[in-house]
Nucleic acid binder design. Structure first.
Length: 478
RNA sequence: GGCCCAUUCGUCUAACGGUUAGGACGCGGCCCUCUCAAGGCCGAAAUACGGGUUCGAUUCCCGUAUGGGCUACCA
């Protein structure tokens, strides 16, 4: 379906200098949500102009992380590295129109001036010397092979940025100098590529991190010079670590793959990230992708930075797990069921038994595996706490009663155990806890009789016998 | 240093001049209960500070403080 001319066009433009950061992921996510809400187009563009730092495998990694999170784009990915013709043509045009000029200072000269300004306590600004070189002389020196950069002629008046999140932000001209568009080796620089591409791709809204706010007047001036309409801007607050510093590797998991690898579901991370700066306006915390796409609005995005709280993410993940259909949860958890998977009917029932008890798919995988493989060890604390001198004897009695059980379902099983407890003159707990330990190796978990029923008579009794053997023969006289 | 941005419970946030400042995570208590969870109920917990403007400021303005960003022939 063709989109009308008025439909917004937005983009996410990561640099492949690292894996997809949760901050970048949230930026992409807001762009996506905005595009869906406004019936616009979401474009992916890889900004790999920095040849020293960009790596191809990192682009692939970012793409796969986006796919996993459900950040699906309508156009692209475009790679800036294959668009150099466009930038060269734009630079030539700007030069020809007198909106940009060549500057012949060497990096060393500039460094010297910078140092001097520093020493004198003033802010360094490029002198603008290149502006006064006559066009034909500039042309001649360039043809003679003299090394030079291309700089933009910045306007001398205040540049105002209308930001959808921050309102009007003004930048006085003293703060801006004629920045470099093209390096002396011919490589176009970041700000230049961004604007040329945004213009070429007819981007209408630039939704990006706060760290670009101060760069925005450069971009406004560039769009003007390029004769392109200035898009609307929306600058998002940064995502911080729990120490309120910009989130980075030091904080642990800052990359989306890391969350994937610890058993976080993409829909939970999506939900969590969406609410890190945006709110639907009411008290809902758990939203479906569909609701977010219908309701997202830049007007409800906050301006302040937000701290990434892993605890809340885990809670959201638990919420996703609690709501997800069992067959789907099985597919997602199966890779983590390292000790094996029971028959599918059993696995599905196990999922429903454990879904309110786990927070990650890794934990779910482990839970599923307990129905496929006998425990290979028992919690030491559990043994200490629940195994008494007469426990083996009690369990033996229970086993013999259970061997005769005709109906292996929770109700009758509970009745049988309670009867055994009565007969032995002990509380139900004295049988229940060691039995859970025998069946699962753990003192915590799903209700015992559900576990027993699911395990089946043969498996349950085998595990109990193995446990009795492990904890030793009944004490004499018991 | 200069320019710019931000500031409501510990954390994510709601309240677009008038609310006992609401919800959620986490925390504590109670209920439920074979354990652990989930769930339900209850509780502690915030408008950074100082000035204005206004009948009235969390909300608007100005300072201060704190945090952050930009200030490259990096992105």
């Amino acid at each position: 379906m063709p989109t009308p001319d008025s439909a917004p066009r937005v983009r996410f433009a990561p640099s492949p200098t690292g894996s997809l950061h949760v901050g970048g992921a949230r930026t992409a996510l807001y762009n996506l949500l905005f595009a869906r809400r406004e019936k616009g187009t979401f474009i992916l563009r890889i900004e790999d102009t920095d040849v020293e730092r960009s790596r191809e495998e990192l682009s692939a990694q970012i793409l796969s992380a986006m796919e996993w999170l459900g950040l699906d784009y309508d156009e692209g990915p475009y790679y800036q590295s294959s668009r150099s013709e466009l930038y060269r043509a734009a630079a030539d045009r700007l030069l020809a129109e007198g909106r940009a000029y060549r500057a012949f200072e060497t990096p060393e000269e500039l460094e010297g001036e910078r140092k001097k300004a520093d020493a004198e306590g003033r802010a360094f600004r490029y002198s603008g010397a290149g502006r006064s070189i006559a066009p034909d002389e500039s042309e001649r020196r360039a043809r003679a092979g003299e090394r030079h950069v291309v700089r933009l002629k910045m306007p001398s008046e205040t540049i105002a940025v209308e930001d959808r999140i921050r309102g009007r932000v003004e930048f006085p001209p003293e703060a801006l100098d004629d920045f470099v568009l093209v390096r002396s080796d011919g490589h176009p620089l970041y700000h230049f590529c961004v604007c040329v591409d945004d213009a070429a791709m007819k981007i209408t809204h630039v939704i990006r991190g706060d760290d670009h706010l101060a760069n925005t007047p450069k971009h406004v001036a560039l769009f003007d010079a390029l004769g392109a309409p200035v898009p609307q801007f929306a600058h998002l607050g940064m995502i911080l670590g729990t120490d309120r510093k910009k989130l980075s590797k030091r904080h642990g998991a800052a990359a989306v793959e890391e969350w994937r690898d610890v058993g976080i579901l993409p829909e939970a991370l999506f939900n969590f990230l969406a609410l890190l700066g945006w709110s639907p306006g009411d008290d809902r915390e758990i939203l479906t992708r569909d609701e977010m796409e219908r309701e997202f609005s830049l007007d409800r995005v906050g301006a302040s930075p937000s701290v990434f709280d892993p605890e809340k993410l885990l809670w959201m993940n638990a919420q996703s797990i609690a709501r997800m259909p069992a067959d789907e949860l099985l597919a997602r958890s199966a890779p983590y069921a390292t000790a094996g998977i029971p028959p599918v009917e059993t696995a599905l029932a196990a999922i429903d038994l454990h879904r309110t008890r786990v927070r990650t798919t890794i934990e779910m995988g482990r839970a599923i595996s307990t129905y496929a493989a006998d425990p290979d060890e028992y919690e030491p604390d559990g043994l200490r706490k629940h195994v008494k001198a007469d426990t083996a004897a009690h369990l033996e009695r229970l086993v013999s009663l259970l061997e005769a059980a005709g109906d292996w379902t929770p109700g009758p099983l509970e009745a049988a155990l309670r009867a055994a407890a009565e007969e032995l003159g002990v509380s139900g707990g004295r049988l229940i806890h060691p039995t859970r330990l025998a069946l699962t190796g753990s003192t915590v978990g799903a209700p015992l009789f559900d576990v027993m029923a699911l395990l089946g008579q043969e498996t349950a009794l085998r595990r109990m016998r193995r446990f009795i053997e492990k904890i030793g023969a009944p004490a004499p006289g018991a």
